[in-house]
């Protein structure tokens, strides 16, 4: 524990300085959380290679207590979405997110995870993972260098430092709702948006200019 944990208002007698710290509950919680964030071992695309490099010889995120990568979502605190999120993968990511215990954090690493990146216009690509799951920190870059990733991790630590156990969602009632898992239909469907989808496809049916709609209406009429 170091000086940074002590609350300066309380004077500790010199003879106890080496063994006693006086601090707030928030601070001790946050300090222990930020010092051992365990990321989920989960690489999606190119950005994952830089993530591996960040964990390896030259950059070594062990210095932040973050090198313990867990392949199981049940044991991890941080989901590092490192790469392009595709529609085919999205239901699985949501499921993994739901399986992570609170407190959990999400970092969108790279242009793809943040907003679709170079592949945004692709028919199988999600324009940013935040369409489905909440994101704490976005890291720009394609791919972000290991330094940028570390900056993102430090940013996350700063965010953790501001938490207060009175306000965080996981100590509240009804905390941690699971996110409905998207369904793969003709395109990816968010169960929360079924009404919207139905409205839209019906509207298309009404639209006279659309030749496909005409055929469909005839079929419906007959």
């Amino acid at each position: 524990m170091g000086e940074d944990l002590n609350k300066p208002e309380y004077e500790i007698p010199p003879e106890l300085k080496s063994s006693v710290s006086i601090t707030t509950l928030d601070r001790i919680y946050n300090w222990s959380r930020r010092s051992s964030v365990w990321p989920m071992m989960f690489g999606l695309a190119c950005c994952a290679i830089e993530m591996i490099c960040a964990a390896a010889s030259r950059y070594d995120i062990a210095r932040f207590g973050m090198e313990v990568m867990r392949p199981s979502p049940r044991q991890s605190d941080l989901m590092l979405v490192s790469g392009t999120v595709t529609k085919k993968m999205m239901p699985l990511i949501v499921r993994l997110f739901n399986q992570m215990p609170e407190p959990k954090y999400v970092i969108a690493m790279g242009a793809c995870a943040s907003g679709g990146g170079p592949f945004k216009e692709g028919y199988n690509v999600i324009s940013g993972v935040d369409n489905y799951i909440p994101v704490d920190v976005y890291i720009p870059g394609c791919p972000p260098t290991p330094q940028a990733l570390m900056n993102g991790l430090i940013t996350l630590q700063k965010k953790i430092d501001t938490q207060s156990i009175r306000e965080v969602r996981w100590y509240k009632k009804g905390a941690s709702e699971t996110i409905p898992v998207p369904v793969l239909g003709p395109d990816i469907m968010d169960p929360r948006e079924y009404d919207l989808i139905r409205q839209y496809t019906n509207q298309k049916l009404q639209n006279i200019d659309d030749p496909a709609a005409q055929v469909a209406r005839q079929e419906k009429g007959s």
């Binding site: 679709g116 945004k120 216009e121 028919y123 690509v125 999600i126 324009s127 369904v183 239909g185 003709p186 395109d187 990816i188 469907m189 079924y194 989808i197 139905r198 839209y200 496809t201 019906n202 298309k204 049916l205 659309d210 496909a212 709609a213 469909a216 419906k220």
Partner: peptide
């Protein structure tokens, strides 16, 4: 980034 065919019922 989604689109659906005409008359589709989820």
């Amino acid at each position: 980034n989604i689109a659906f065919p005409t008359g589709f019922d989820p």
